[in-house]
Simulated scan of single mutants.
Amino acid sequence: MSKKLIVVVGAGPGIGNHVAKKFGDNNFRVVLVSRNQDALNQYVEELKSQEIEVYSVVADAASTESVETAFEKIKKEYGSIDVLVYNAAIVEGGRPTSLTPESLLIHYQVDVVGALRSALQVIPNQVANKSGTILFTGGGLALQPAADYAALSMGKAAIRSLALTLAEELKPQGVFVGTVTIAGAVEPGTHFAPELIADKYWDLYQKHEDHEIVYS
């Protein structure tokens, strides 16, 4: 039986790579996506050293053209995408009055629009196959917004709404959409260690029951 394929947009040493490892340990092929080729090369070597079949593609989640080109390459070279994880976000502080319309749009291009961009690349095939999973990295700021992280609070609220509305639309078509709402700071060696949070993505994928897990 051939391995299923997971694509992680927003690869990195925290949640992204630990989700990739969790699925890779469970016989998935992995494609990591981020803007930095040098970092991707390092991540690929780390996962390969753990006997995971892993590849990488460079893309900027804020660019429609870049995302479309990346997914065309992924589908051509690695086949149908069974699971998409969107983990990209701009994590910067700033109070509401420090924002400008332009700076907020920059955040939204990555935090929210990039999630939709990526999802639209996999939804048609998943609907045609009546099978597939799309998972988003959410945050507790969606539930308890903080003035010191105004743009990120708005972004996490929006991606939560995107996840839950997509879930409602796509469930009858056989596609599962979920979000892990991480209500705390990700930190190795704590309750919010990335490997523990990665287990929740796997739970959503396996069970296809709740569309949101609030990890607190």
Rank of each mutant, 00 (worst) to 15 (best):
L104F: 09
L104D: 04
L104C: 08
L104M: 10
L104K: 08
L104H: 04
L105D: 15
L105T: 15
L105V: 14
L105A: 14
I106M: 15
I106L: 15
H107F: 08
H107T: 00
H107D: 09
Y108I: 13
Y108P: 11
Y108A: 14
Y108S: 14
Q109C: 12
V110N: 06
V110I: 10
V110L: 05
V110H: 03
D111C: 00
D111Y: 01
V112R: 00
V112E: 05
V112N: 05
V113G: 12
V113R: 13
V113T: 13
G114I: 05
G114Y: 01
G114D: 03
A115D: 08
A115C: 06
A115K: 04
R117E: 09
R117F: 11
R117A: 09
R117L: 10
R117I: 01
R117S: 07
S118T: 03
S118Y: 04
S118E: 02
S118N: 09
S118C: 08
S118P: 04
A119H: 02
L120P: 11
Q121M: 07
Q121S: 03
V122G: 06
V122M: 09
I123D: 06
I123H: 07
I123Y: 03
P124S: 07
P124L: 02
P124Y: 06
N125R: 14
N125E: 14
N125P: 12
N125L: 13
Q126C: 01
Q126T: 01
Q126K: 04
V127M: 06
V127R: 05
V127S: 04
V127N: 06
N129S: 14
K130V: 08
S131H: 13
S131G: 11
G132I: 02
G132F: 01
T133H: 05
T133L: 00
